[in-house]
């Protein structure tokens, strides 16, 4: 994209249209009136600031700042507390839009690779869809070792008391490492997931076309 066309794209509706087409509930982005109640309602924004809070993301979308929006870590901070949704005076489904944009960025492969939420989400998804059951041990180990073996051991040691407690309470089974529990009809689960992907694809295609 040349500098000139990049400028021409600014404040044009192209990126907004892209978001409307590609992002779940993306057609609500245009309804924002920039009151900021979402950004102010977000507990994680007051824990550690988002780079761009929701209302600002919406303005950036309208301003055509495609790369900045899709590569930011911001929407990955959403914990689905729904404060923003219940308070939004325009009834924007902000939580869903945040997840939608995150998912789209992920789909395009531009999402920040090591953003913890994204990393965990990926791990969880792979873990859960493999056998139809979540293998807690493998999931937490995957998370501990994401920054390498040494860091993983260190992290694991820090949590050892919690782990032992969980084992005692029969909430964690060390033998899960050997494969673990699965659901009864694994083939059925895979078929369901495949069908769900298909439905989603066709819905997106229909939306893009229409």
């Amino acid at each position: 994209m040349s500098a000139n066309t990049a400028m021409a794209e600014k404040y044009r509706n192209n990126f907004l249209k892209e978001i409307e087409e590609q992002v779940e509930m993306g057609d609500w982005v245009k309804m924002c009136m920039q009151c900021g109640v979402c950004s102010g309602s977000c507990p994680t924004n007051f824990q550690s600031a988002w780079e761009h809070p929701p209302q600002e993301l919406f303005m950036m979308i309208r301003a055509g700042k495609r790369e900045e929006v899709l590569t930011t870590t911001s929407m990955w901070n959403c914990t689905s507390c729904y404060n923003c949704i219940v308070r939004c005076p325009r009834k924007l489904p902000i939580t869903h839009i945040m997840h939608g944009i995150a998912e789209y960025a992920h789909r395009l492969g531009v999402a920040p690779k090591m953003q913890p939420t994204r990393f965990f989400s990926g791990l969880f998804w792979k873990n859960a869809t493999k056998t139809g059951r979540v293998n807690e041990l493998k999931l937490s180990m995957g998370l501990y070792f994401k920054n390498g073996f040494g860091a993983g051991v260190k992290e694991g040691m820090k949590m050892k008391d919690v782990a032992l407690g969980l084992i005692k309470a029969k909430r964690l089974n060390p033998f899960e490492i050997l494969g673990g529990h699965t659901c009864k009809d694994q083939k059925g689960i895979q078929a369901m997931l495949k069908k769900a992907y298909e439905i989603e694809r066709s819905r997106k295609a229909a939306k893009t076309a229409g």
Binding site: N4, M7, A8, K10, Y11, R12, Q34, Q55, E56, M59, M60, A63, K65
Partner: peptide, 14 residues
């Protein structure tokens, strides 16, 4: 000047 994005040099071309 885009007051939300605090961009003093915002432009819309063409």
């Amino acid at each position: 000047h885009d007051l939300i994005l605090d961009d003093a040099n915002a432009t819309i071309a063409d």
